[in-house]
Design a protein around this nucleic acid. Structure first.
Lengths: 169, 169
DNA sequence: ATTTATTAGTTTAATGTTGAGATGTTTAAT
DNA sequence: ATTAAACATCTCAACATTAAACTAATAAAT
């Protein structure tokens, strides 16, 4: 998952300002939290032979219905070249199927197959439960606070890189 | 980087409990924040032809001194097989060098070369500045709050997976 | 001492990931 | 209509990533 980050920074070698130390502390802990949670959820997915990207695609199709590849790429924040491969691998396992749009032949709609639907309907609840468990270490109010702070950090997207609106606010 | 996550979950298709919605909202925003920050910092690294993992290794060596590969793997939370390749690529560019430990020949110490030292000394401040900028959207107090909440999430490691202690607390 | 277990690192297969360039499709401009 | 621009997808090279199998070196057990 997450590829990521700068794990052990600053040790006392050089001197950094309080502002730098504070920012770095927040940054490091944000990264470690995300890494930590993703590591555990991806191990659950591994039991179903799914990668995080594959799950992402199945989950989007499950909750949003059929989409074309560029829309899927935007949803899971990956490149279109990458989506091609992820869909290839899902198609090999007969979890999704491609269907060329007859009105605009540039588009390829991706549909969940029956077995894909069965699988995601089985996997999703266990991921949901894992997420609830991950967050349950924080009381309700602090889960909200975490969401609010992370949202502010995440919002400062580069111009031209903003992807799409969340479905849960 | 971050490999990532479940980006768009739940839309109204099914009904989820308040607990689930709250946990999922926090989870999604945590992931998006980490993804967003990592995306921007990795674009800076790209200008130096460094990947996030390569930077991670150089940064650890810079701040901690020479380490063996398994220690580096633990620091940047990657597998030892991966470290072999990352070090290979850094060695090709003459940024680090391998040195077999003469007392215990299983270990290979990794050292920064002169040019590796020059590079990380140039790159690190720009990454530091970027992190400070990322976090500066939050007032000081809230940076501390974010760090505290993320730390709690990150702490619940699986047994046997706890890696190492942070240098900044 | 010999066997056994542990540890460090490498290799391999499978998948992911990006960015850049190529192909095919549609729309806009002239 | 022809051309140009925009768009969706695919391909490719390079690097990342893990897990599992493997080699080599050391430590522990007997």
């Amino acid at each position: 998952m997450f590829n990521v980050d700068i794990y052990c920074m600053i040790t006392g070698v050089a001197s950094y300002s309080d502002t730098e130390k504070r920012a770095l502390s927040a940054y490091t802990k944000l990264m470690r939290a995300a890494e930590s949670v993703t590591g555990r959820t991806s191990r659950i997915l591994g039991a179903y032979n799914l990668t995080v990207s594959q799950f992402g695609v199945l989950e989007v199709l499950f909750h949003k219905g059929s989409l074309c590849q560029s829309e899927l790429a935007a949803k899971i924040l990956k490149s279109t070249g990458n989506i091609t491969m992820v869909i290839d691998n899902l198609e090999k396992r007969n979890l999704v199927r491609r269907e060329r749009d007859q009105n605009d032949r540039r588009f390829i709609a991706i549909h969940l197959t029956e077995s894909g639907h069965v699988l995601i309907e089985e996997v999703f609840p266990s991921i949901m439960a894992a997420i609830v468990k991950e967050m349950s270490i924080l009381p309700e109010r602090e889960q909200g606070e975490l969401a609010r702070l992370c949202r502010l950090i995440g919002l400062q997207e580069d111009a031209g890189r903003r992807i799409d609106v969340f479905t849960i606010t």
